[in-house]
Write a protein that binds this DNA or RNA. Structure first.
Lengths: 141, 141
DNA sequence: TTTAACGTTAACGTCAACGTTAACTTTTAA
DNA sequence: TTAAAAGTTAACGTTGACGTTAACGTTAAA
């Protein structure tokens, strides 16, 4: 039994059920299978994906719309795996790979930009720490 | 003439005039002097502060409420400079410094957490780049 | 088998972070 | 000095990202 009901997923991910359904609704979480009665049956993959989404949202500060692109690439990666090596499909596969390369390269650029800006920020804070510490030692003598 | 009208500030910062006024309204940007007729007269300090706010907002993904704390520390730093070395005020100054230290240390911790998470992200993207490049070279032979 | 716990959709509510518009005053360039 | 450009406040509108509630169907344990 490797499927989860929405409440289990909510507990593991720390998100609310509403949020999980919402992420499916706007297309950042791929839809799970359904039970006979219509209940969502999630897999480990869904939980992993949610974790990635939360990271992108909270850490990188991406909006859910920006995360769409991000997610689309992961989707294509998985898709690529499924495609058998057929000579007829080779051409199409190659063009898809090139397309993905462009997107991933762009993402890398964004992340590197954020990283360098963050480093600047860190330096500023470090400087403030230094000034405060100097002030404290100087005064408490 | 080292004061700027709001439109100049808007152009330099890339923000809209509405946004600049809004930031003042909610207290993340300290209010500028006013002209006889009531027009806002900004200084370089304001522009610098706005740049910091934008960075905290876009790069760190902080909400404007979180930025309040962030800004409060900067404000206190400037304030400290103004306070003359009076023996009577020394005790109070020291306690303020300790207070600031706690806040700044907390900020540093947050930034470091974000930095490490971002590094993880970078690694994942790097891995994807590698896989895609491998796929392309393998196919285009 | 029945009832409580949990699931579903649908619709309206909320809050942050501005955009837009109106109605008006101040500056500035001709 | 007189338009036009740019400033002001005030108020309502919008959008993203969910929260909340209602009205109802499904599951699982007693």
């Amino acid at each position: 039994m490797d499927t989860f009901k929405i409440d289990d997923v909510a507990k593991e991910s720390g998100l609310t059920k509403r949020t999980i359904r919402y992420y499916e609704e706007i297309g950042v979480l791929f839809p799970p299978e359904r039970s006979e009665g219509g209940m969502r049956l999630y897999t480990r993959k869904h939980i992993e994906r949610l974790s990635q989404i939360v990271n992108a949202r909270d850490v990188l500060g991406f909006s859910l719309m920006e995360i769409q692109d991000f997610v689309a690439i992961r989707e294509k990666m998985d898709e690529q795996k499924q495609v058998y090596w057929k000579t007829e499909a080779a051409e199409e596969k190659l063009s898809q790979l090139r397309e993905m390369k462009v997107m991933v390269d762009k993402q890398m650029e964004m992340v590197d930009q954020k990283l360098s800006k963050m480093a600047e920020f860190r330096k500023e804070i470090e400087y403030m720490q230094k000034r405060i510490n100097d002030g404290i030692t100087k005064m408490s003598t």
